[in-house]
């Protein structure tokens, strides 16, 4: 399969690889996917509790090149956004930006899930939690499965 230039670029030079201290009260961690499915993404955000701006984002991904690129792009996009703005990011925008073919759409879905899971974890830790206590957002029903 031929990859788009942008996927190759993110694969070769992934942005924001790494980990943030997950016990830090201002850090939210999302871990989505499963090893049996061949995709696991960990996405972390550090949120300024006053401005609610995501000041730092890090990721690690087990998955194909498109999964790595989707999560790398997601960290770029959430940085500097407020959590409310970050929650607006749609998987379809990731698909468009990276030119993902139909068989790779699930990678973008996972990246969107990872953003939502990380923010939901931060909200929970900050006492702003909605009903869902952990992880995958119930509301984030993505377009494609």
């Amino acid at each position: 399969m031929a990859y788009s230039e942008k996927v190759i670029d993110h694969y070769r030079n992934p942005r924001n690889v790494g980990s943030l201290p997950k016990d830090d009260p201002n850090v939210g961690t999302g871990l989505v996917g499963a090893p049996e499915c061949g995709d696991v993404m960990k996405l972390q955000v550090r949120v300024n509790p006053v401005t609610r701006v995501i000041e730092e984002a890090k990721f690690k991904t087990f998955g194909c090149g498109s999964a790595i690129a989707s999560s790398s792009l997601a960290t770029e996009w959430v940085k500097g956004k407020t959590v409310e703005e970050a929650l607006q990011i749609k998987n379809t925008e990731i698909v468009r930006e990276l030119n993902l073919p139909p068989v790779k759409i699930h990678c973008s879905v996972l990246a969107e899930d990872a953003i939502k899971a990380a923010i939901s974890d931060w909200k929970r830790k900050s006492g702003l939690a909605e009903a869902a206590p952990t992880g995958a957002p119930a509301a984030a029903a993505p377009a494609q499965e």
């Binding site: 980990s19 090893p35 696991v40 690690k60 991904t61």
Partner: peptide, 8 residues
Amino acid sequence: RELSPLYE
């Protein structure tokens, strides 16, 4: 592996 959450 440096990029892999599973390895970590």
